[in-house]
Amino acid sequence: MDLIQKNLLLQIAELHDIPEGAYNIRANGESVGRNTTANIDIVKKEDKDGIDIIIKPGTVNESVHIPVLLSQSGMQETVYNDFYIGEGAEVTIVAGCGIHNCGVDTSKHDGIHTFYLGRNAKVRYIERHYGEGDGNGENVMNPETIVHLEEGAVLEMETTQIKGIDSTNRITRGDLAAGAVLEVHEKIMTHGKQFARTDFSVDLNGDGSSANVVSRSVARDESRQEFYSNINGNCACTGHSECDAIIMDKAVVSASPQLTAGNIDASLIHEAAIGKIAGEQLIKLMTLGLTEAEAEEQIINGFLK
C-alpha cells in the first residue's frame, strides 16, 4: 500500500496498518491482503466481483475488516459481499470505502452487502465512507445493505459519511424474525453541491422484533439530502425511526417517513426534525469566547459525534 492508500485506510477504518484478525483489503479492484482465522473464512466469489465471509456458529470476540480503497481516478466497480453469520456468533465487522480522486473522471464504488444472521447471532457493523482528491472527478458511492435476521439475532449498524462523497444513494433493506433487533445509526454531512439519499425499508415479521433507525445529518452550502424510511410492522413488534437534520446555507433537506402497521400489536413511531442551528446555542458558545464559525463547528461536531 502507498501513502495515499494508507491514509484512506486510516480515515475509514481507523487503522494505521494491517488489522488484526480476519481481513480483506481491496485496493483498486484487487485484493491486496487477506487473512482468515480458524472461525472466519473469506472466499472470493467465482461468478461476480466480491467475497463471501463465513463465520462459524459460536464465534465470539472476533472481528473482520473489509476496507475498500480507490485511488485510481475513474475507477468504477460493483462489488458483492455476502456475510454468513453462524448461530450465536458475536462479532464486529468493519467495512468502508475510501476514494482518493485527483483526476477528472468519476470514481465509483457500489457495494452490495448481504447479511444472513443465524439465530441469536450478534453483529456490530461499522461502515465509513470517505472521499478526497484535488481533481474535478466526482466520487460516487452507492452502498446497498440487505439484512436477514433470524430469531433473536441482533444487528447494530453504524454508518458514517462525513466528507468528500459527491453523490450517494444508500439503500438498506431488512427483514426480522421473532425477537430480532435491528439498530441503525446513520451520520451524514454534505457540502458543496453534494447529494445524499438514504432509503431504509424494514419488515418486522416476527413477534417481539424491533427496529430503531436514527439518522443525524448536516447539510451545508448547496448540498441536497433526501431521507426515506419505511417500517412495516406485520406482527407484535416495535419500530422507531428518527431523522434529525441541521440545515445551513442554501442546502435542501427532505424527510419522507412512512410507517405501515399490519397488526394491532405493532407499535410504530417516527420523529423528524429539520432546522438550522439554534441561535441560542451559537450565542452561548460565543459568550464562552468562540467566534461564530468556531461555535458552528463545535455544534456540528457534537451533533454528529
Binding site: 441560542e280 459568550t287 469566547g289 457534537g302
Partner: peptide, 21 residues
C-alpha cells in the same frame, strides 16, 4: 459577544441552553 468574552466577560444564562451531542 466573542470580543467581549475574550475581554473577560462571562454570562451564566437564566435559562440554560440545550445542546444535542
Amino acid at each position: 459577544i466573542t470580543e467581549r468574552a475574550k475581554k473577560g466577560i462571562s454570562y451564566a444564562f437564566q435559562q440554560p441552553v440545550h445542546f444535542k451531542g
